[in-house]
């Protein structure tokens, strides 16, 4: 096994690491960069807790290798905002109690931010009635957020938080 140098652009900063090629992007963030905001719920693409935004798209960081992302721009929950300076989506989750235990939360928030962009970009979903007319609705958000499981099941509150931000964006 050869340790492999890898550079990631995490939350705007270049970070160089030398990694076991087996290291997932998730473990690179959590164990090497100590960015533990991104969570490991299943490590198999089955829960969404590890969602981060890579090159503008949300993905499950548990099912990709860090070295496959050499040079890529990675946005994590820590990059969106901090406890003192929350991103509007983070604030909306607090206001609407869009969580309970908090473990799925960073993944939900990263996903939510990306979902609004996907709708904006006109990317259809399973519930889009006319594939050529993509518009915001609660049903759209529920479907698109379904890759983020919340066992505490703050679901309606999460939808309310996202709706708030979406409406704010329009205003």
């Amino acid at each position: 096994m050869t340790m492999t140098p890898t550079t990631l652009k995490v939350n705007g900063k270049d970070v160089r690491m030398t990694l076991d090629p087996r290291t997932t992007l998730l473990d690179a963030l959590r164990e090497h960069l100590h960015l533990t905001g991104t969570k490991k719920g299943c490590d198999h693409g089955q829960c969404g807790a590890c969602t981060v935004i890579v090159e503008g798209r949300r993905i499950n960081s548990c099912l990709t290798l860090a070295l496959m992302h050499d040079g890529d721009e990675i946005a994590t929950i820590e990059g969106l905002g901090s406890a003192d300076k929350m991103h509007p989506m983070q604030q909306a989750f607090v206001t609407h109690d869009g969580y309970q235990c908090g473990y799925c939360t960073p993944g939900q928030i990263c996903s939510a931010v990306a979902v609004l962009e996907e709708i904006e970009a006109g990317i259809p979903s399973h519930v889009t009635e006319d594939l050529n007319k993509v518009a915001y609705s609660d049903a759209e958000v529920r479907e698109r957020m379904s890759g983020n499981i919340c066992r505490c099941a703050a679901y309606p509150n999460i939808i309310a938080a996202i709706r708030d931000v979406a409406e704010g964006d329009k205003a």
Partner: peptide
């Protein structure tokens, strides 16, 4: 799958 998985 999910939005995240389809992106990859």
């Amino acid at each position: 799958a999910s939005g995240q998985l389809r992106n990859k």
